[in-house]
Design a protein around this nucleic acid. Structure first.
Length: 468
RNA sequence: GCGCUCAUCGUCUAGCCUGGUCUAGGACAUCGGCCUUUCACGCCGACGACAGGGGUUCGAAUCCCCUUGGGCGUACCA
């Protein structure tokens, strides 16, 4: 057990997106690797936008990814007393002050300053004010005006900003609610977080937060800022780039291990290795190999990884997952062939679980109609003999193992003088309704004698019908 | 605009810190071939990058500077 304490602190204003998931993953990995503690904190100080649904969605997504936490979830909305106390503390010590400027005045000033080419910072109007009129006010933190602030980022190295670039941050709103930059400091400190590992977009906040740690008498933690994830156009990843919610990927038939593997490799590497299990990662992950530049989210590679994990995954587990999808689509699975056997015929040719479900459906539902083109080509009158032969030879089998099936096909080929290429497609259409399926011997063997005979007979009957 | 920051194949990256072993390696994608009863898988191969310009050095992808480009921030959002 080390004393490393990290945290993931999402704000519940939507689902867990891939960027947040990666941040959570990095934190989780580090905590597990160092046998430290992973804290989950919900940053819901924005009452307007925070929802319980979002909290649930985030929790669910973390669970799906396998990112378990050791403490929390803590809700900032339940810690307002703590924050209020800290505000008074700073006020009493003269490290913060009441500001009576209205939002309108502020934005007007900001606009004016921007127009004239200046920096849009708070001008300090109320900084030295001593009266306390009975008017709405916010509380601002007195940011040091001289010198500069720098810190050593574990990923980016030394970062330094002149204090005159900073202005006095609002730490408490007119309505009495504290703001993000303030509570994050208090919480990270009070929760004993000693490494703040978060997104790149917080680098600028860090230099604002450090003086607050100091003012509050807290020890400044270490920081590590992971680069952003961008879309294909190098703009910040958003909905218009396609799915950004990790749970949407689950719905699209992705495996959590594929998502984890993809996310970790976006910005981190370990030599030439591409495939990592969670255990591998816990062993190998390190901040030292995290890159400093933003990365583009590449759905193709995610898909490839998913393909990989489907190919190498446990058939039983995959079967359970596919069953879920099939049942959801109203397909009855119980009285069909063995699901694990079905899955094994599909693992090499599916990219997602949804693909797999699509490919598995015919095993459980006899084709209600045949693909038109396929039927015209492979289920026409010329194929009558082939069908009859199939029915005869397969009907004679007592066992329906892969070997038996193969044997029967061999016999048919000998008797008819036809090659498999002349027989296979017909069987496929008769059995599956289309031209795409796993290997035909597999299909026949897994489908089982009863279903095969029924479907073959039906195909033959269809031929009769057409003939009349 | 200002501040912070980043910069190797289309994309993710190795290499950079500790210059020479880099005619820059791997992966995804793309293209071609092989395999083949369909679709796939698999296998083999091809294409493809050190952003540009200056330095430093015997020698730079690696160190320094400038330029350009990208990202982030600049809220009573987080």
């Amino acid at each position: 057990m080390s004393d490393l304490r990290v945290r993931f602190a999402p704000s519940p204003t939507g689902f867990l997106h891939v960027g947040g998931a990666r941040t959570a993953l990095f934190n989780y990995l580090l905590a597990r690797k160092e046998q430290g503690t992973f804290v989950l904190r919900i940053e819901d100080t924005d009452v307007e936008r925070s929802t319980q649904e979002s909290v649930d969605a985030i929790l669910q997504a973390m669970d799906w990814l396998g990112l378990s936490y050791d403490e929390g979830p803590f809700y900032q909305s339940e810690r307002y007393d703590l924050y209020k106390g800290k505000v008074s503390e700073l006020l009493d010590q003269g490290l913060a002050y009441r500001c009576y400027c209205t939002p309108e005045e502020l934005s007007a000033k900001r606009e004016a300053v921007t127009q004239s080419g200046g920096k849009p910072r708070y001008d300090g109007t109320c900084r030295e004010r001593t009266d306390q009129p009975d008017e709405p006010f916010v509380v601002r933190f007195k940011t040091p005006q001289e010198g500069s602030i720098s810190f050593v980022d574990r990923i980016k190295g030394t970062i330094s900003v002149e204090n005159d670039e900073l202005d006095d941050l609002i730490i408490q709103r007119t309505d009495g609610n504290p703001t993000y930059n303030f509570v994050v400091v208090i919480d990270d400190a009070e929760m004993g977080i000693n490494l703040v590992l978060r997104g790149d977009d917080h680098v600028n906040n860090t230099v604002r937060q450090i003086p607050m740690y100091e003012a509050l008498g807290y020890k400044v933690p270490e920081f590590a800022h992971v680069p952003m994830i961008l879309g294909a156009d190098k703009k910040r990843l958003s909905k218009r780039h396609g799915a950004t919610s990790v749970m949407v990927y689950r719905e699209m038939g992705y495996l959590p291990e594929a998502m984890v593997n993809y996310l970790v490799r976006l910005g981190w590497s370990c030599g030439d290795e591409e495939i990592f299990s969670m255990d591998d990662l816990i062993e190998k992950f390190s901040l030292d190999n995290v890159g400093r530049s933003a990365g583009v989210f590449n759905p193709d590679k995610l898909l490839w990884l998913n393909e990989h994990y489907i190919k190498t995954g446990d058939s039983q587990r995959l079967g359970d997952l596919v069953t879920e999808i099939l049942v959801g689509q109203g397909v009855t699975v119980n009285d069909g062939p063995d699901m694990t056997a079905v899955i094994k015929t599909l693992q090499d040719r599916a990219k997602t679980l949804v693909d797999m479900a699509d490919g598995a459906r015919f095993y459980f539902q006899a084709p209600s109609s045949y693909d038109e083109k396929a039927a015209a080509k492979f289920l026409n009158d010329e194929k009558r003999g082939v069908l009859e032969l199939l029915i005869k030879h397969l009907g004679e089998l007592t066992d329906f193992t892969l070997e038996d099936v193969e044997g029967a096909f061999k016999a048919i080929m000998e008797e008819s003088g036809l090659k498999l290429g002349k027989i296979g497609p017909t069987v496929r259409v008769a059995l599956t309704g289309g031209t795409v399926s796993p290997g035909i011997y597999d299909v026949v063997a897994v489908l089982g004698k009863e279903a095969v005979m029924v479907r073959l007979q039906k195909a033959l009957a269809t031929l009769e019908l057409v003939r009349q």
